[in-house]
């Protein structure tokens, strides 16, 4: 019996894992190999010629006298990307949670409608959406003019091409990835549970923290992962709304496969990022695991 159940579970999980294993893990192994090869003169790599330059150059550079020097350029780019992603995640959560809660409290038919409403804007292209934001945010743009019309003379909004514009754009891009998982968790929330909490004398705060949030927790966790990590790879929004003044990780890695034609370094940067993310997830998991028990 135990065997049977185990094998049934195996067959449930196997397709997804084998698929990812074949189409992702194997190519990644190949890419790990690329990262320790010597770069080719014209791009690509010299197969079979090993070099660890790529990893060394993440932290060190050669100065004029050909000495190795500690170089923080790339670490700064990583730090900036992690910071912006964390900020985006928080914004998306602040906006996304109430919305998911609101949707889950609607009658069944309207719920489905609202969920579609969340995803419809994303049928348009990311470049076009960012363009629309540029028009909204620029000086003399719609928001600027709107504020002036309301009698608030901003004298130029001066927000486009700043990090603020980037976070507005990134939050926009990743909102559905926060709302939908939270909604999926909250959808089963029974109104009567909340009513019961109120009847038992709970105030709003307690009803929220004791009834609603615990139910939404798996969804919030999933949403945070789906916003935070893809956001680290954001490429277009920082370029367009940030005015291309500051690099994010994806821009850096992209340029290694682009103008720099340095595949090993690009691949190495990818693996360094992977290591960072896995590490932060492990820390998060260790911290998070001890939390629910304490609360309950």
């Amino acid at each position: 019996m135990g065997n049977l159940i185990r094998s049934k579970r195996f067959w449930l999980i196997a397709p997804a894992v084998l698929y990812i294993g074949f189409f992702m893990a194997v190519p990644l192994g190949q890419m790990a190999y690329v990262s320790i090869l010597e770069r080719g003169d014209y791009g690509a790599v010299n197969w079979g010629v090993f070099s660890f330059d790529a990893y060394a150059s993440f932290l060190f550079e050669r100065d004029l006298m050909d000495n190795l020097m500690f170089n923080t350029d790339y670490l700064q780019i990583f730090a900036r990307s992690f910071g912006l992603s964390a900020m985006t995640m928080v914004f998306a959560l602040v906006l996304g949670f109430p919305t998911a809660f609101y949707i889950s409290m609607q009658p069944q038919a309207r719920r489905n409608f609202l969920i579609f409403l969340v995803t419809i804007p994303f049928w348009t292209n990311i470049l076009v959406r960012n363009y629309a934001w540029m028009l909204l945010l620029r000086n003399g743009g719609l928001i600027d003019n709107g504020l002036a019309w309301l009698g608030y003379e901003s004298g130029g909004l001066d927000i486009l091409y700043t990090p603020y514009a980037v976070s507005i754009g990134l939050t926009y891009t990743y909102l559905p990835f926060m709302v939908l998982p939270i909604y999926a968790s909250l959808e089963k929330l029974d109104h009567r549970l909340i009513e019961a909490a109120f009847d038992l004398g709970a105030d709003k705060w307690r009803a929220m923290t004791r009834v609603i949030l615990p139910l939404a927790a798996p969804g919030i966790a999933a949403g945070c992962i789906l916003v935070f990590i893809p956001c680290l790879g954001a490429y277009v929004t920082p370029e367009l709304l940030g005015g291309g003044k500051f690099m994010m990780i994806a821009n850096l890695i992209g340029s290694q496969f682009g103008a720099a034609r340095n595949w090993p370094f690009g691949a190495a940067l990818g693996f360094v990022l992977l290591a960072f993310v896995l590490l932060s997830m492990m820390i998060y998991a260790m911290k998070f695991k001890s939390l629910p028990e304490e609360k309950l």
Partner: peptide
């Protein structure tokens, strides 16, 4: 895993 690896890589 597919989430964790930068797209270009």
């Amino acid at each position: 895993l597919p989430l964790l690896v930068p797209e270009i890589v």
